[in-house]
Design a binder for these strands. Structure first.
Lengths: 235, 235
DNA sequence: TGACACAACTGGTACAACCAGTCAACCAGT
DNA sequence: ACTGGTTGACTGGTTGTACCAGTTGTGTCA
């Protein structure tokens, strides 16, 4: 019998999670949050725990607090930032596939541009990329290993692009992937990934183009490869 | 006479800022932060203020705190997320142009893809876009107005792309722009923008392609327009 | 030498108070 | 019908202190 560990998140994290869910579900009338003292009372925690949670919500641009006045909910579409991905992707235990599709589209766009930049700036990456592609070919049945290798492949390209923002975006997107993974378990939903991994040859093409320093070819190859998954996901 | 409001940031925000700067400047030996009590003592503030700041750093994936153990600095390249842009762009009062160039590259990539998606999904956006382009033509000498209109133009395209993540990325990028603006004042550095606005005709071309539902033409036109600024910035 | 126990850290939570803004209502004065 | 001042009941911001809980190093004892 496998007993899962009991989650022991700090109180402020739990409060953050609760408030976040309530905000995204638009549960506050007029978009006005109760006072910190009231929240502390209803959650039956100390006011400091509430304050720490509110500070995080504030940083995520989800609320606006002002001394003396009340704390208001902001529109995350116009105020929120990309880091919300992880929180928007899975809500109330169900995956928002529209958000997931958005993430795949973004991955394709940035992945393609990163490949082009990598070809222009770090064609030497080529060797490492081919090695990963070889490894992937060697275990086409091990989905977990393929996942890991795929991450290595694209991380190398993004590193080669010498674009810090692409690196950070990749982190954000991978974070979303992790959330998705945890939410779906080892479910069959990763048919998408499985299908993508059937085309390791295309990764090789990307690597070749990068090795040749041919930015446009690298871009096209990467875009074609990544875009297929978007289409498969209903884009 | 224009009187600017007096800045009165909460203590925890100031502590956050100080710690952030120290972290990005790699000022902590072995990447280990002093204890909360020590930080409170050195900053001469209450421990709660320090805790609120640390919660935010934790959320930004800049530090890892563990009860009983010490708080460690994480590598923002591998752990940080896109929201760091605003903090990385301007440090110690000077602009990091490498980061700025990265942002411009990302803008070009996402802007082009958003234009393509907009053409496919919301060709009707075309009308509003042309109206903005007209307005821009009408006041080619008013940089502030051009800036505002430009934001409206691209926001409309991103809305039309129906991609929530592009919307959030736009927010993040615009945030960076605001930071840049505030840091540089009305400085001459916005030669870049000025040059971009000399090509309002290209925006019209983007709008036309979108109106025609021609995704690839919209992508090419948008990319060409946005990419020029990247090149001008030394990309 | 190894296992255990303790002490001295660390972060996490709590209560109680007070400072400092906001807002609405009311009240002069103009 | 306005202006500005006053008041009181809210709001968030700050503080100090105490204690709980987990980690880590150290020293003792078998």
């Amino acid at each position: 019998m496998a007993l899962a560990p009991v989650a022991a998140a700090p109180l402020s994290d739990q409060v953050y999670r609760r408030l976040l869910d309530a905000i995204l579900a638009d549960e506050f009338v007029e978009g006005i949050l109760p006072s910190e003292r009231d929240l502390a009372a209803t959650f039956e925690v100390n006011r400091h725990a509430v304050r720490e949670a509110l500070k995080r919500l504030q940083q995520a641009r989800l609320v606006e607090v002002s001394q003396g006045g009340s704390t208001k909910v902001l529109d995350y579409r116009t105020e929120g930032r990309l880091d919300l991905l992880a929180d928007l992707l899975v809500r109330a235990g169900t995956v928002d596939w529209k958000v997931a599709r958005s993430a795949l589209e973004m991955r394709a766009s940035i992945g393609a541009d990163a490949a082009a930049l990598c070809a222009a700036r770090a064609p030497k990456t080529h060797k490492a990329l081919l090695k990963v592609a070889d490894a992937m070919d060697r275990h086409l049945d091990d989905l977990a290993a393929l996942d890991a290798d795929n991450v290595v492949f694209w991380t190398a390209i993004v590193e080669g692009s010498a674009n810090l923002l692409y690196r950070l975006s990749l982190n954000t997107l991978l974070d979303g992937l992790r959330i998705l993974d945890a939410s779906l378990g080892d479910d069959s939903v990763f048919e998408l990934a499985r299908e993508e991994y059937r085309h390791v040859g295309e990764l090789r093409e990307v690597a070749d183009a990068i090795g040749a320093g041919d930015a446009e070819r690298a871009r096209r190859a990467a875009y074609q490869h990544l875009r297929r998954t978007v289409t498969a996901a209903g884009g």
